[in-house]
Amino acid sequence: MDHTAYTKDMFEKVKRDEYHADRITRPTISYWADVWRRLKMNKLAMTGLVILIIIFIMSILGPYISKFDYREQDWDKINLRPNKEYWFGTDELGRDLFSRAWLGTRYSLLIGVAAALIDFGIGILYGGIAGMASPRLDAIMMRIAEVVYSIPYMLVVVLISVVFSDAGSGTSMFVLILAMTITGWVPMANLVRGQVLALKEYEYSLASESLGASKGWILRKHIIPNSFGPILVNVTLTVPRAIFAEATLGFMGLGLQVPKPSLGTLANDGLAVMPIGIFYQILIPSILISFIMFSFNVLGDGLRDALDPRLRQ
């Protein structure tokens, strides 16, 4: 054959964009707009979002709406049932439960959301790296996670509360969030790793790999978006878990330092008067916890459905 038949002008330089055909994704803006559009169609998720916004606003404003300070005690008005003056009643020290409940909501939400975000961040990073790494590194990383998870939780909590307590702070928000996250990220990392291990065997990951995409790229663009569903569900479960864990520490007397309230310590205080048939003190924080849980969960589900690339039309 005549080699000269192929001249330079017969070739056209492929544009970089086209070469990385795999990289073509929808513009970010339309992606999130799309998510929002589909989230709006989900009535349950929107209900959750609305409840959450209301609770959020009340947790900021609630303590100021009541004319009583959260720590003001009136010993002649102990254990009053909800009434015109005290909308949520009073507690065992004659304090207004309305301002305490909303302030407690504020602290619980802070603890829960902060813990969930930290767990999420560490979990994704750690689990993602372990899943994509060589089997050897993966094994080492998973053993480290196992070690962290096997260390007695109470020992860690007691230690950090001793180490990080400036005189007077007792169990501060910081200590509690640290206590929640110090081992809390491990299940998230395990979940992410499991997802990564499964998803990297999918055709689109393999295709991407064979087209020369880097591991980080595959992780960011394929695996994480595709495993967002289970991960998001886990995040929405981490918020209640952290709120519960704080409550359980409160049950053992290691909750947020009094007189500051949290939903967990309020519920624990309510437990004390339950045997004499006073239930509003335990019901109010429990109902607030339930609403928060419900909202986070349905919102998480809705987001999951809205974010899922495969359900997109």
Binding site: F244, S286, S290
Partner: peptide
Amino acid sequence: NKAPDYISMIISIIGVSVPSFVLGSFFVQ
């Protein structure tokens, strides 16, 4: 997004809505 979905999710949400010490105490009482 149909009724069985909502019902089963609400059932499972109730399970995570009450701290175990509250639930246990209610069970006892």
